[in-house]
Nucleic acid binder design. Sequence first.
DNA 1: TTCGCAATAGTCGATTTCGACTGATAGTTT
DNA 2: AAACTATCAGTCGAAATCGACTATTGCGAA
Lengths: 192, 192
Amino acid sequence: MPRRALDNPLVLAVLGLLLEHPTHPYQMLTDLRARGGDRAAAINRGTLYDVVEALVTAGWVAPQGTERTGNRPERTVYALTDAGHDELVRRLDSQIRTPRREFTQFLGAVAHLGALGPIGAVEALTERGQRLSARIAGDERELAEVLAGGVPRLHVIEAEYALGQARAELAWIDTVVDDIRAGSLIWPTRED
Amino acid sequence: MPRRALDNPLVLAVLGLLLEHPTHPYQMLTDLRARGGDRAAAINRGTLYDVVEALVTAGWVAPQGTERTGNRPERTVYALTDAGHDELVRRLDSQIRTPRREFTQFLGAVAHLGALGPIGAVEALTERGQRLSARIAGDERELAEVLAGGVPRLHVIEAEYALGQARAELAWIDTVVDDIRAGSLIWPTRED
DNA sequence: TTCGCAATAGTCGATTTCGACTGATAGTTT
DNA sequence: AAACTATCAGTCGAAATCGACTATTGCGAA
């Protein structure tokens, strides 16, 4: 029994890919990148191999055999086991069903906004707002193009969600900047 | 020069606390928990000690001396260095200024929503919606109480942000559930 | 008063993750 | 044709993280 929970985000990504068809890790990498799967998880190659191995010991994935092209390193092809399929569904279900508090870098930074002072805060937030709205515009366009190209909406549903989050963040940033400028969000001076 | 970037979320939390006054790690822990600093970062005690040590080698924090109460283990008190103060501001500024794509568990799960099938997806999303709205209500109440109690808004600004994100998530969940029920979000059958 | 439990404070081994490195093939400049 | 560069594919040691473990004090209940 593994001591730790094996909760690297790549776990879902790998199980999800193998649900479609068996492949070797390098192929997973390119597939994930191609279809913007790197929009749902940070992908490090070394980690990917580690995760796949961990999945094998967990019994959720099994080596299917090896291939070789030319004199390149041998590639091991992995396939999803039945247990792996169950695990994928179980994880998906639980991760969707129960909201856990998630900690983003930005949230952590916002918690110490005070240390930037009102001027610094306005400046930094304003710039973020600009960059963020540029990104939103780009993502919206891209999403529309992909959908127009016939890709089913379900396959880009996470992009839609991310867009919603980004829009809400932008709205919040705007109100905070306004409030600081208007003096309604005040900077308490420390009394120790 | 450390090989890695030292980007554990606790870094900001620790630097932020030491900005106020020197303390020992255990005190940081209780302080962080008390003021809901655990709303901005996951806190593991072992990791906290590791991070503090890393901050020392980075020169951002320095041991100030040791205390001892009774026969308890000795406590080392740390203080922020000037370099540490600079680093705090630099990190804060850059983490706020430039939006990076952040990967939450939920986002990762949503990317594979298809694997649950329409029924399973509706079920899981509906439950999340219920739990989430309960949480939102609780957080709203708590936030209002704290503010009414005289805590400056700036000190709970991250709770406000988190609330905004949660509300947007809830709204998105509701539309997706409706769309699945209405049949406007269709489940493509795989043709390989 | 003695038992048990919570809070205090930190250590340490095992696991997980990272990212630099290797080394082949194929295409493209100069 | 030599010299670059990009892509392919994976390995491995070092660094980061976790969480189980230790050990003391103080308090309320039995």
